[in-house]
Design a protein around this nucleic acid. Structure first.
Length: 394
RNA sequence: GGGCGGUUACCCAAGUGGCCAAAGGGGACUGACUGUAAAUCAGUUGGCGUCACGCCUUCGGAGGUUCGAAUCCUUCACCGCCCA
């Protein structure tokens, strides 16, 4: 149950007990547990936050259970209650398919492809009729939805709550039923969908309710707010080992334990030891973070790449040396610093470049440049900000 | 259907005729410092230029009033609250 977050001890105990019972039951029936988690492929690029549930699925896989990676190609057409005010462009089936493919591709950096079933919920949801929906919907009251924090807060704030958003939970419950799931994994934002909706619908349709594994939410690089691309605090999966390593190094010290729990392969004992060593000072926070960054990077890019990323990090930020590979740029003699930066896409606008120069953020071979319009005095290594380098040659 | 209120930069949010490229917070970026791209402190955060000065574009869309509009008027779109 490492990294789980039920927000209620009784619920956690109930789920733990039920999981134990279900394990015994499955064993007697000579079958593995059926575990699933659903993902809506609205965006193609995943970040670390998305991998928390995948890691939990992977653990189940490693223990020999049957894992289904459910792609919500139907639910994603309708929309997720969490972002409400943006009009979502309707994705074409081709776009959804493309997103789903890259989604699965990235997910397989964590999941074992050979042991993962991929299903699409349009397979059954698109066939439900209104007549089918009525008895399903009759399991719920508006009051139940309104007690859900997510909706309640919006209700109190006077934010819109659309009618179709209530379908979402019902559809997710139906997914669980169709997959005959023993266990459903999800983030804390899925608590209602999994515990209230899915269990109710499964029971109503005569199946055994699924057991909820509710994972904590991974904070972003700011350490506080949920990781999300639109907030700019995310660590993308499709990047480089160096970038991932560096981004992990930029998280605040206090969230290290959370990261250790949610996005490493470490066992509970190891995490506890890590936490303890940090708390009593036997592990230096910097070394702890390097260990964390190494583990996370190795997980996605392999040990070797993680090693290289770590070396690059030490060279660049601890010893202030140059990175190994510096891109080259052919400048014409007489080109100004600003022009070179724009041409090499180091900056987005000339104003941005001027600001950087004013802030002493641009260096040539270690010398701070002060005049944006002056021609580059000589070829050399141009450093823009902390981490952008360019070998300028004439 | 009626009445009232709202729509501001990456996000949240102030601004009700000129001192508004637009307060504050978050995020992001830069510098100093260091234990690191952490923490802390300071700064920057629409674009362009002949760059301590000027020009252009932006406050939901389109028109209008005015010497001058994010601010006033008309209209359209969307949202909320109350009434039906």
């Amino acid at each position: 149950m490492q990294g789980t977050e039920y927000g209620d001890e009784a619920l956690k105990q109930a789920m733990a007990t039920e999981l134990r019972e279900r394990l015994i039951e499955a064993q007697q029936e000579g079958r593995p547990l059926r575990v699933y988690c659903g993902y809506d492929p609205r965006k193609a690029d995943l970040h670390l936050g998305h991998t928390v549930t995948m890691r939990k699925l992977r653990q189940f896989q490693d223990l020999g259970h049957e894992v289904t990676f459910l792609i919500g190609n139907f639910t994603s057409l309708i929309g997720d209650p969490s972002d409400k005010d943006k009009l979502r462009p309707r994705l074409t089936p081709e776009e959804i398919e493309e997103n789903a493919r890259t989604y699965a591709e990235q997910a397989f950096r964590i999941l074992d492809p050979a042991k993962t079933r991929i299903r699409y919920n349009a397979e059954w949801l698109s066939k439900l009729s209104l007549a089918d929906m009525i008895p399903l919907a009759a399991n719920f009251t508006l009051q139940q939805f309104l007690t859900r924090e997510n909706f309640r807060l919006r209700w109190e704030r006077g934010d819109p709550i659309y009618l179709h958003e209530t379908f979402y939970a019902i559809m997710q419950g139906y997914d669980a039923y169709m997959l005959q799931a023993d266990v459903q994994v999800g983030g804390t934002d899925q608590l209602f969908n999994i515990v209230t909706a899915a269990r109710k619908i499964m029971a109503f349709l005569g199946a055994k309710p699924n057991i909820a594994i509710i994972m904590g939410i991974l904070p972003g690089t700011d350490g506080v707010v949920k990781m999300s691309k639109s907030l700019g605090n995310h660590i993308p999966i499709n990047t480089t080992a160096e970038d991932m390593y560096g981004k992990v190094m930029s998280i605040p010290d206090f969230v290290m334990p959370t990261y250790a729990k949610l996005v490493t392969r470490w066992l509970p004992d190891e995490v506890a030891a890590f936490e303890k060593a940090l708390a009593d000072g036997t592990l230096h926070p910097r070394d702890a973070k390097m260990k964390l960054a190494f583990e996370i990077t190795a997980n996605f890019y392999g040990e070797e790449a993680a090693q290289r990323a770590q070396e690059a990090f030490v060279r660049l930020f601890q010893k202030h040396d140059l990175p190994e590979d510096v891109p080259e740029f052919h400048a014409e003699a007489g080109q100004s610093v600003l022009e070179i930066m724009v041409k090499a896409h180091l900056i987005n606008s000339k104003s941005e470049g001027r600001r950087l120069i004013e802030q002493k953020g641009v260096r040539l071979d270690g010398q701070v440049l002060t005049d944006p319009n002056a021609p580059l005095p000589h070829p050399g290594i141009l450093q823009v900000g902390k981490r952008q380098f360019l070998r300028v040659i004439f």
